[in-house]
Design a protein around this nucleic acid. Structure first.
Lengths: 351, 351
DNA sequence: CTGAAAGCGCTAACAA
DNA sequence: TTGTTAGCGCTTTCAG
């Protein structure tokens, strides 16, 4: 004779009502006991706990949330979740958030403004407690402004929006790009190409500005033909690189504004039979795991990725807890990591 | 004289009650008009729409969900979101899900069983409509079983659990590993090392089994000293590789069971001054972007990653829509991608 | 210390 | 075609 397995209660979930009934108390008392507030007699507490355990009671968070007006969830809207930069941040946020018993709802905008609006709409209709967003557009941000005005805690990462009064975490893109290009200049390069993204993303524009300023500071002219536009994907970057380096009198060095483009450039160079740093030099914005696996390793401008997620969480929790101070705009410096992809320009050109 | 900006309504959100009042109808009528069901007069419809627009009404999805008993959200619990394999799947799921107006809630278990239990608990208490999970453990899965019994649609990815009656999507890990090792054998290798993960993750175990069977099939003995255990991180894999190749009479070839370990092995070889494929050959499980950037490129067993996410969504929606058929267990074949990291063993040993 | 009752915002019978 | 009403599951006054 074997012990009977517990009856599979199938469909309907057990509610606090069931627990209360089983423990012979009112729902109010059950709630008090279960959530540990107010006065509850010892005997009752015991019976209620027992009943809850037996029935396998799990509070319906939806109902709790409706009551409280909010769900213990933070929404995260990255530009693209499969971008390692955002994936790591997502991970960091998640870890950090868990400590304060919040969940993370990730919904990627895929750099599409319409989609971003949609997602944000949904998230706020869900009454999430706060939002961490990498806005897809630098111009169109009525929807974000509205959120802030409606009192939704919002932290912008990677991309700041001046006219929106909320916390933000960015890096000094212009300075980083400036540093990269200056390094190339210091190595003797004069024809320095750049592959950039002409989208509305602020980040890319700031990096391009850094490039321009570095050249200007060095008294060099800005040559349109050296500035190639590509979408931020490996495939586009390959084409763009090939076009850029197929013109007469091509650049002797290249600066790429993000890691996807750096990858594309690498692939393009390989297919063109160009070797780094012999035939040309390369500096990319954003460090990436691949950079140390290539031969030579790639010199990059690195961002303090690991700091962004945790700080974003700190900020958002702060606001949730009622901090009303003026927006905090954190801007991290970047760091140039010198590896082996830059050399003096030279003989290679005499072929 | 400038037009007054719309009054910033600040705190309280507009509810359907507000809309109804403004349009001079009952809440029921407003709801009917807003959701487009039942009969509503034209005039009323108009007024309601207008009022909603003016007030900026957004339905409270929490309340709707409480009413309906469910939130249009699918939960995804990957082993680790910063693993590119899962990141891509997350992205694919997200894209696919959006078509059916569901949101994706990602909560990474970090391969931790306790955390997985917690997360799943939370998600189901939230009344999500379905769950896509890469279970952290092959043994401990009472919690999953309970979910299924409770009627929660569940799709397992990457790792199957035989005793749980639910849909799953996996790849043929054993066959893939067998193929990889056989390839090494066919190239003349006899001392083939493996770096694997002894965790409870089924995937890793199946891959190890494939390794063992390939050797057995070839009539070769299984040598414990060639089988190194590492955690699935780049750092651990580096150490393990160094140890494995520092012993007397080291392997002439290596098989790694996932891409993190492959990266680690690559880094270890570099630090040891070992060159591929001259000093030793390498085949890794799982393709990864890095594999084509190294010189030589790495031969790998690739999984059909791009198919997993979309199929998982199809399956889960199917169940949500009431499909009661027996569990569907999809198992994809893998594909050996031959690149340049394998050569015949040889002279290199005579140094 | 405990229970009755109201209500979060929304939907859906049921009546009118 | 529209309104009344009940109730999803939970929390929280307010009385007792």
């Amino acid at each position: 004779m074997t012990a009977k397995p517990p009856i599979v209660t199938a469909k309907r979930a057990v509610t606090i009502k069931d627990v209360a009934a089983a423990a012979n108390v009112s729902r109010a008392t059950a709630a008090r006991a279960l959530n540990g507030y107010g006065y509850v007699g010892d005997a009752a507490t015991e019976r209620i706990a027992e009943a809850a355990r037996l029935l396998g009671y799990r509070a319906n968070r939806l109902a709790q949330a409706l009551r409280h007006g909010q769900l213990p969830i933070i929404g995260f809207v990255p530009g693209a979740i499969q971008n390692p930069f955002f994936a790591q941040i997502a991970h960091d946020i998640d870890v950090e958030l868990r400590r304060s018993r919040h969940s993370l709802l990730i919904a990627s905008s895929e750099e599409d403004l319409t989609q971003e609006r949609d997602l944000l709409d949904n998230l706020s209709a869900l009454n999430v407690r706060g939002l961490i967003v990498a806005p897809a557009s630098g111009q169109e941000n009525q929807h974000l402004k509205r959120l802030v005005q409606g009192g939704m805690p919002l932290v912008l990462i990677d991309r700041e929006l001046e006219d929106i009064a909320c916390d933000s975490i960015t890096v000094d893109n212009a300075a980083g790009a400036h540093q990269a290009v200056s390094f190339l200049l210091a190595s003797g390069h004069r024809r320095i190409g750049v592959i950039h993204d002409d989208s509305r993303i602020v980040t890319a524009r700031e990096r391009l500005a850094g490039y321009v300023r570095a050249l200007t500071d060095a008294g060099l002219p800005i040559e349109k033909r050296l500035m190639a536009v590509s979408q931020s994907t490996v495939e586009y970057a390959i084409d763009t690189t090939i076009r850029l380096f197929s013109q007469p009198d091509p650049p002797t060095a290249l600066f790429t504004v993000d890691s996807l483009m750096t990858k594309g450039a690498l692939l393009a160079f390989r297919s063109m039979g160009l070797s780094i740093p012999h035939d040309l030099s390369l500096v990319g914005f954003d460090d990436f795991d691949l950079a140390i696996f290539t031969d030579p390793q790639i010199t990059v401008v690195s961002q303090p990725v690991a700091q962004i997620g945790p700080l974003a969480v700190t900020m958002i929790l702060d606001r949730i807890n009622g901090n009303r101070e003026p927006p905090r705009r954190e801007r991290f410096p970047t760091r140039l990591i010198v590896r082996g992809s830059v050399a003096r320009p030279g003989m290679a050109r005499n072929r």
